[in-house]
Write a protein that binds this DNA or RNA. Structure first.
Length: 636
RNA sequence: GGUCGCGUAGCUCAGCUGGAUAGAGCAACGGCCUUCUAAGCCGUCGGUCGCAGGUUCGAAUCCUGCCGCGAUCACCA
């Protein structure tokens, strides 16, 4: 289904008068009534007009969905382009001649159509000026153009972030969080009810390592006494554990052990496993230390989440969920869907799905990661009865999710089909992947600090904040720093690997967050000046039909596209579409701003129109940036 | 080795549900501030869309093969 049609969803379509009087089957020209209010329909109107033209002119049946319509490319005159190659057979004429005939038909029968031209097999249709002006007048009156009200009903549950509690958040998590949060916002803006959930991996050998290290070398310190962020504090003990273990492993290897054996048999590993065992047995002292250390980590994480601007409706903890899934497995075994090996381990045969068999319970009855994930999927289903279960998880787990879905399907879970793995690519650094062992991990907090610092330096150097209070200035630095970071990450297609070049990420020129923020601030400044001169929204009471400048029309076309872009972004879970769209819009506006007077214009109607256009642009920029979790300042 | 993904300008990325002369930004070079914020605008330079076939009126886009890069194929999570 082409995305153009996908926008006609209940939340968006037919908001006002349903006054289209298209008569597809009758053999007479089609008329549209004057008050067509839904501008999203224009593609359909043209498509149906073309279908009628073909029917009447060439006695051939073409469904409107088959009519290929695209936006007219910049270098040609027109708004919408109909591809007429497919009709040249029906009319038994050259594409040019067909284009001329259909164009003429549209011009005569559709009141929206002003002019047209034909180049090769392309029919470029220009809509009338007042179509665009009416569009602006009407949509300016709407509070949130393109943004749908959230509909009640089954929610979409989206899991993201999903950290381990033994280490602070890093750049990889940042991409995850930004994607998750933005996709959630985009879905909400498209009318979906959304629940944001986090699954915290708070148990297991990794946190036991931190615990052990703290017991051994911590000397009773806490994040407060050490004056350190809680997640950093706990992370440091994890690092220390690994460091000490490495020494032991080296020693063992000298004694002739293989690396793997040496690791397993090292004293520290043995002790860590002992801590894990105690934890599992519910040893009070171990449990208490565990919950203390995790609390520290959460305080640290919360700070980072808050700064990034991400929040969750519900947080799941693996300590609560790690035993789930066994019931499902046992049930599956009883129903003969799963099978047991001689050693007592339980497996799922997936040969019919072209996957290898998957272990679900070890011979000692303990579960594996997959078992747990089956359980949490079921839990989440029971909690929400969701429409969809989304997981924002890196693409290294593609196979895991294929298997997860396959097993749930075998177990007869209807919701298996609603599980969607939003798989995103790795973040790479200029010198390769992030490796904690090599100290090339980019810490999330440090990263944000650096972005902010650079924003502050640049802003000061440009002399932009002379009349700002200190508080205002600090707020602006944070806004710009975060804007740069978020935009840099979100503008690339989630599915693809991305290269994070620190130097490029803090550039503020060109296709960057600050560039977009700047344009917004500039427009707001213009509007403030206008207000001083007595121009107030909605500006357009008595504006009548007049010639639109090329650039004005280009901007209107882009603004007009916003709902469609939003819908596409929601359908494909891609904030990048929104990012690229808003950049394009802002670039176009800047071109207009550069050489078109607004307040310096003499004709008051033009002033009013341009103010309205500017206001509307600022509003869409703000809306779009909000979907990316990026704030736009009033001044910068 | 099997499976999946990726390969577009010096660099980072758009475009990929087939359509016009493949677009942006950065970098380089050259212009534009006594006029609404120059974090801006305009211009120049830069491409055998990894390679080879195929389908089509038309292929960066779809199909096949090859080359290169990555992920994955755990009784790790």
């Amino acid at each position: 289904m082409p995305t153009i049609w996908a926008i006609f969803t209940p939340g968006l379509m037919m908001t006002k008068k349903q006054s289209i009087t298209i008569t597809k089957r009758k053999n007479k020209p089609v008329r549209f009534c004057r008050e067509i209010k839904n501008y999203l329909m224009i593609n359909q109107i043209i498509a149906e007009g073309v279908a009628d033209a073909v029917k009447i002119l060439y006695q051939a049946d073409v469904s409107p969905q088959e009519v290929q319509i695209q936006k007219t490319r910049k270098e040609f005159e027109g708004d919408l382009t109909v591809v007429v190659f497919p009709f040249s057979r029906m009319g038994r004429k050259s594409p040019e001649a067909i284009g001329e005939q259909i164009g003429k038909f549209l011009q005569e029968n559709l009141q929206e159509v002003g002019f047209f031209n034909v180049i090769k097999g392309f029919l470029n249709v220009s809509l009338k000026n007042n179509y665009w002006i009416d569009f602006l007048i009407e949509k300016l009156a709407e509070e949130k153009f393109g943004i749908s009200e959230v509909q009640e009903g089954k929610p979409v549950v989206i899991e993201f972030s999903s950290p381990n509690t033994n280490k602070p958040l890093h750049l990889g998590h940042v991409r995850n969080i930004l994607l998750g949060d933005s996709i959630a916002s985009i879905l909400e803006a498209s009318g979906r009810k959304v629940a944001r959930v986090n699954l915290v991996n708070d148990r297991g050998i990794h946190i036991c390592k931190s615990m052990l290290a703290w017991q051994k070398w911590g000397e009773g310190t806490t994040p407060e006494t050490a004056d350190k962020k809680g997640d950093k504090f706990v992370g440091d003990y994890y690092v220390q554990f690994e460091k000490q273990k490495k020494l032991q492993v080296k020693q063992k290897m000298l004694e002739g052990y293989s690396e793997e054996e040496a690791d397993r048999e090292s004293q520290l590993m043995q002790d860590a496993r002992e801590v894990l065992k105690k934890w599992e047995q519910g040893d009070p002292e171990t449990r208490s230390l565990w919950s203390n250390m995790n609390e520290w980590v959460y305080l640290g994480f919360d700070e980072t989440y808050k700064r990034i601007g991400a929040g969750f409706d519900k947080i799941y903890y693996e300590s609560d969920t790690y035993l789930l899934g066994r019931e499902l497995v046992k049930e599956g075994l009883e129903r003969g869907i799963l099978y047991e090996k001689e050693d007592g381990s339980i497996w799922c045969d997936l040969s019919d799905k072209k996957l290898s068999d998957k272990l679900l319970l070890r011979s000692d009855g303990t579960s594996v990661y997959m078992t747990q994930d089956l359980g949490t999927a079921q839990l989440r289903f029971d909690d929400y009865h969701p429409d969809k279960l989304l997981y924002v998880v890196g693409n290294e787990q593609n196979h895991h999710f294929d298997v997860l879905k396959a097993i749930l399907q075998k177990l007869g879970k209807e919701y298996a089909k609603d599980i969607i793995h939003i798989s995103y690519g790795m973040v790479e650094l200029p010198h390769g992947k992030m490796k904690s062992r090599e100290g090339t991990v980019v810490d999330a907090d440090d990263l944000i600090d650096e972005m902010r610092e650079t924003a502050a330096e640049t802003t000061r150097a440009l002399g932009k904040i002379e009349d700002f209070s200190e508080e205002e200035a600090n707020r602006l630095f944070e806004t710009i720093g975060l804007g740069a970071l978020k935009y840099f990450i979100l503008k690339v297609d989630p599915k693809k690997h991305m290269l994070f070049n620190p130097e490029e990420s803090i550039q503020f020129d060109g296709n960057t967050g600050p560039f977009i923020q700047y344009t917004h601030a500039r427009i707001r400044s213009l509007l403030r000046k206008a207000a001083e001169r007595g121009f107030k929204a909605p500006y357009l009471e008595n504006v009548h039909d007049f010639d639109l400048l090329h650039k004005e029309r280009q901007i209107l076309r882009l603004l007009h596209d916003f709902p469609e872009i939003l819908q596409q972004a929601a359908d494909t879970y891609s904030p990048a579409l929104v990012a690229n769209y808003v950049y394009e819009l802002v670039k176009e506006y800047n071109g207009f701003y550069q050489d078109t007077p607004v307040l310096r214009e003499e004709d008051e109607n033009k002033i009013r129109f341009r103010l309205a256009l500017s206001e509307f642009t600022a509003r869409i920029v703000k809306s779009a940036m909000q979907l990316l979790g990026i704030e736009v300042p009033e001044r910068m």
